[in-house]
């Protein structure tokens, strides 16, 4: 499962090719190629400013790449092929693509004026994937799954950080995505709350959903990841199984980084 070669018969869950992104003169992504197979858990590591978040946000087109492209389950994201060129998709089509990709933010970004239940049920109803009743039932199931069955009517500000992030994960799951992206999901949490969120993500791993997690939790990566990617200076320095990258890093930058965070 740690292979990075594309299977010819089956589309990869995520395929990033030649990703380049500049912020002004600052090069954030410098030719990233990444393949994640369906059902895999990929953990992206790297020092701050290495381009991890940008790469993740490019996968659901929250960031538009300057050069390169992303496809999810073989479908180009945010662009379409027009002969030998790529053309930007309309907003509506991009939104429809995003609905199939879950995203969990570092800062939770729950809608503060909606209850936990409403946060989870909003998107399936708004995108026409479920009726109000169905969405409600699903939301209650998901809340139970993240251990917050009793918080359905709580507003986000009445919840702890860990609880909010679990609601945010439930919200991402509500659209039954085949792929969920986690952008440092535990970095904004008090240390004692990190565990409950990681536990929820751990439960998701192995459920068949493809997960890509940007994190600094090396222990979590070792335990759960199928693929560990080390990003530095906008390109992938090293990738492989946890055993390869974390226990036997080949590249000096990887070794240096691991020595700091471990």
């Amino acid at each position: 499962m740690s292979s990075t070669t594309t299977s010819p018969t089956r589309a990869a869950a995520v395929e990033v090719r030649g990703a380049h992104k500049w912020y002004g003169a600052n090069r954030v992504l410098d030719g990233v190629d990444l393949t994640v197979q369906p059902g895999q858990v990929a953990v992206i590591l790297g020092p701050s400013g290495s381009g991890k978040s940008t790469l993740l946000r490019a996968i659901n087109h929250l960031e538009q790449l300057d050069v390169g492209h992303v496809s999810v389950n073989g479908e180009l994201i945010g662009v379409r092929r027009h002969g030998e060129r790529l053309k930007e998709l309309g907003e509506r089509a991009i939104l429809a693509q995003r609905a199939g990709i879950g995203f969990v933010f570092q800062g939770f970004n729950l809608f503060p004026h909606l209850t936990a239940l409403e946060n989870i049920a909003a998107a399936p109803v708004a995108t026409g994937r479920a009726t109000r009743e169905e969405a409600r039932a699903t939301a209650l199931d998901l809340l139970a799954r993240v251990g917050l069955a009793d918080k359905a009517d709580a507003y986000p500000r009445q919840l702890s950080g860990g609880q909010q992030q679990r609601v945010a994960i439930a919200r991402a799951l509500a659209q039954r995505p085949g792929l969920i992206l986690f952008d440092e999901p535990t970095s904004a949490l008090d240390p004692e709350l990190v565990g409950e969120v990681l536990a929820v993500i751990r439960d998701l791993a192995g459920s068949g959903t493809t997960l890509i997690v940007v994190t600094h939790e090396i222990g979590f990566a070792r335990e759960v990841a199928d693929l560990v990617v080390f990003l530095d200076g906008g390109h992938i320095v090293e990738q492989g199984t946890p055993a390869e990258v974390l226990d036997n890093p080949q590249h000096p930058r990887t070794r240096e980084f691991l020595s700091k965070v471990l």
């Binding site: 659901n60 929250l62 907003e91 509506r92 939104l95 429809a96 693509q97 995003r98 609905a99 199939g100 990709i101 995203f103 933010f105 800062g107 970004n109 729950l110 809608f111 503060p112 004026h113 909003a122 998107a123 708004a126 995108t127 919200r171 659209q175």
Partner: peptide
């Protein structure tokens, strides 16, 4: 309204009108 709210709404694929009426405007 926090930028994260726009991003969360966009990431969920909420239709544009819905984003404004139900997420941004109430806040």
């Amino acid at each position: 309204v926090d930028q994260g709210q726009h991003e969360a709404a966009a990431a969920l694929g909420l239709p544009k009108g819905y984003q404004f009426r139900r997420i941004v405007l109430p806040q």
